[in-house]
Simulated scan of single mutants.
Amino acid sequence: MSLPTVRPVRPGDAAQLAVTMARAFDDYAYTVWTVQAEGRFDRLRRLYSLFVAEFAAGHGGVWVTGDCAAVASWLPPGVTGPDEAFQERHGAAIAELMGDRLPFAAAAGEITDQYRPTEPHWYLASMATHPDWQNRGLGASVLAPALRRCDLDGVPAFTETASEANVRFYRRAGFEVVAENELPDGGPHLWFLRRPPGAAG
Rank of each mutant, 00 (worst) to 15 (best):
D83S: 11
D83K: 08
D83V: 10
D83I: 09
E84I: 04
E84G: 06
E88F: 00
R89Q: 15
R89E: 14
H90W: 11
A92L: 07
A92S: 12
A92G: 09
A93D: 13
A93L: 12
I94N: 05
A95W: 04
E96T: 06
M98H: 15
G99D: 00
G99P: 02
D100G: 12
R101G: 03
R101T: 06
L102C: 07
L102A: 14
L102I: 04
L102S: 07
P103D: 14
P103E: 11
P103T: 03
P103N: 13
A105T: 01
A106H: 12
A107K: 06
A107L: 05
A108F: 02
A108V: 07
G109Y: 01
G109F: 06
G109W: 02
G109H: 11
G109M: 03
I111Y: 11
T112S: 14
D113L: 01
D113V: 03
Q114P: 02
Q114C: 15
Q114A: 15
Y115M: 10
Y115N: 04
Y115G: 03
Y115D: 07
Y115W: 15
Y115S: 08
R116T: 14
R116M: 12
R116L: 13
P117L: 00
T118E: 09
E119V: 12
P120L: 05
H121G: 09
H121P: 00
W122S: 08
W122N: 10
L124D: 13
L124G: 06
L124H: 01
A125S: 15
A125M: 14
S126H: 12
M127W: 08
M127K: 08
M127H: 10
A128R: 01
A128V: 09
T129L: 01
T129C: 06
H130W: 05
P131Q: 04
P131K: 05
P131H: 10
P131S: 00
D132A: 11
D132K: 11
D132R: 14
D132P: 09
W133E: 09
Q134I: 05
Q134R: 06
Q134M: 01
N135V: 03
N135Y: 00
R136Y: 00
G137L: 03
L138T: 07
L138Q: 02
L138G: 01
G139F: 00
G139V: 00
G139D: 12
G139P: 10
A140F: 08
A140G: 15
S141A: 15
S141Y: 07
S141H: 12
S141M: 09
S141W: 08
V142F: 12
L143M: 15
A144P: 02
P145L: 02
P145C: 01
P145E: 04
A146M: 11
A146L: 07
A146K: 13
A146I: 10
R148Y: 04
R148E: 15
R149W: 04
R149T: 14
R149K: 15
C150V: 08
C150I: 02
C150L: 01
D151N: 05
D151S: 03
L152R: 14
D153G: 07
D153R: 11
D153A: 13
G154S: 03
G154N: 04
G154L: 08
G154D: 03
V155H: 08
V155P: 10
V155N: 04
P156V: 02
P156F: 03
A157D: 07
A157T: 06
F158T: 05
T159E: 04
T159N: 11
T159H: 06
T159F: 06
